Amino acid sequence: METLIVKAEKKYDIYIDSNWLEDVQKEILSKYPEEKILVVIDENVDKIYAEKLVTLFSKKRVKKYILPSGENSKNINEYASILAELARSNFTRNDLIIALGGGVVGDLGGFVASTYLRGIRFIQIPTTLLSMIDSSIGGKTAIDFDNKKNIIGAFYSPTNVYIDTKLLETLPEEELLSGYGELVKYAILDKKIYKLINKDIEIKDLIKACLSYKKSIVQKDFKEKNLRMLLNLGHTIGHAIEAKSKFRIKHGAAVALGIIYATKISNKLNLLKESEQIKIFNLLKKFNLYSEKEFDVKDYVYSDKKISSNGKINFVAMQKIGKCKIIAITLEEFIKLL
């Protein structure tokens, strides 16, 4: 087992291993022997792993809230429904929420935990590659609203994160591709990860490398005042593409498309050499994420959370593999660069 300790606004541990879902359930029940537990679980995860989650759900104090799969479930109605379940069951601040699924479950479950009774403990058990390498740590929780992604949310860290890489074996191809989109992002940000991708290493080690990089950023800038904005590489256009597709395009795939746009913009701004652009495009092609398709997303960019009060957008530009920087561009200039 690998362990990472995150020290952001609070300290928590990330445990990484393979084929240990049964042990995870036993450990949680042992750590919380009397507390009520609500498991927010993705409907597909519930179907696939019902038999392997018997240890957890055999306890009467453990309740289950099944969430429909997909980004469209990350809405205010599901949020209110989970709150109602907690209130009806008289959950206290000492009780526990478990988010068992991908990024949608983690974002929604975490936001519920951050607001119910002004904060209740919650554990992340990510089941997708994207949530394992990115969204399960860092403390960002949110729901979508008015067709705008993550527009209502809070910074709220989990109590613990348990990662079982065995769960990736049942992951659909489109979910794997979504995870690869975030993986490419980390490889561009960190040269060590870029080099690791071309080596024959276990997925567990690749996950740990991404989490270690994100941990180093989050510990310095938990609430995204400056340095953490680098993690938004590809997200300005990526979020716009997601919204335009009504979230039919998976988050990581949209981020990959956003990276293509960001690469071309960085080149237009004379920040990224042609040779480095080719490296980035080849990296995307390696994971079957490169596309020449264009998207008219101008209207969606105007609702981006990264727009400052002076009307400028904080854009993550690339200079080379392992070196990116945040630049402030007026919306008008940014739109012209698309």
Rank of each mutant, 00 (worst) to 15 (best):
residue 5 I to W: 07
residue 6 V to E: 00
residue 7 K to I: 10
residue 10 K to P: 07
residue 14 I to V: 15
residue 15 Y to C: 03
residue 16 I to L: 15
residue 16 I to C: 04
residue 19 N to D: 12
residue 19 N to C: 09
residue 23 D to Y: 01
residue 29 L to A: 05
residue 37 I to Q: 00
residue 39 V to W: 07
residue 39 V to C: 04
residue 40 V to L: 06
residue 42 D to N: 10
residue 43 E to D: 14
residue 48 I to A: 02
residue 60 K to A: 04
residue 63 K to A: 00
residue 64 K to E: 08
residue 72 N to H: 07
residue 72 N to G: 08
residue 74 K to I: 12
residue 74 K to P: 10
residue 76 I to E: 13
residue 77 N to Y: 15
residue 80 A to F: 13
residue 82 I to D: 06
residue 88 R to Y: 12
residue 89 S to P: 10
residue 91 F to G: 05
residue 93 R to K: 15
residue 93 R to F: 05
residue 96 L to Y: 06
residue 96 L to W: 10
residue 100 L to H: 08
residue 100 L to M: 15
residue 100 L to E: 00
residue 106 G to W: 14
residue 109 G to Y: 09
residue 110 G to C: 12
residue 113 A to R: 11
residue 113 A to P: 13
residue 113 A to D: 02
residue 117 L to S: 12
residue 120 I to S: 08
residue 124 Q to F: 11
residue 127 T to D: 05
residue 130 L to Q: 01
residue 136 S to D: 10
residue 137 I to G: 00
residue 143 I to V: 14
residue 149 K to H: 11
residue 150 N to G: 04
residue 151 I to M: 13
residue 151 I to T: 14
residue 152 I to K: 14
residue 153 G to S: 04
residue 157 S to R: 05
residue 157 S to D: 13
residue 159 T to K: 14
residue 160 N to Y: 15
residue 165 T to K: 07
residue 165 T to P: 08
residue 172 P to M: 08
residue 174 E to K: 14
residue 175 E to A: 02
residue 189 L to N: 09
residue 190 D to Q: 09
residue 193 I to F: 04
residue 201 I to E: 11
residue 210 C to F: 01
residue 211 L to D: 07
residue 214 K to R: 03
residue 215 K to Y: 03
residue 219 Q to R: 05
residue 222 F to E: 15
residue 223 K to P: 03
residue 225 K to Y: 11
residue 229 M to E: 06
residue 235 H to N: 01
residue 235 H to F: 07
residue 241 I to R: 08
residue 241 I to T: 03
residue 244 K to C: 06
residue 245 S to R: 01
residue 249 I to S: 05
residue 258 G to E: 09
residue 271 L to W: 02
residue 272 L to S: 09
residue 281 F to D: 02
residue 286 K to H: 11
residue 293 K to G: 10
residue 297 V to H: 06
residue 300 Y to K: 11
residue 305 K to I: 12
residue 310 N to E: 14
residue 311 G to S: 01
residue 318 M to S: 03
residue 323 K to L: 14
residue 325 K to L: 13
residue 327 I to E: 02
residue 329 I to Y: 03
residue 331 L to G: 11
residue 333 E to M: 03
residue 335 I to H: 04
residue 336 K to V: 05
residue 338 L to H: 03
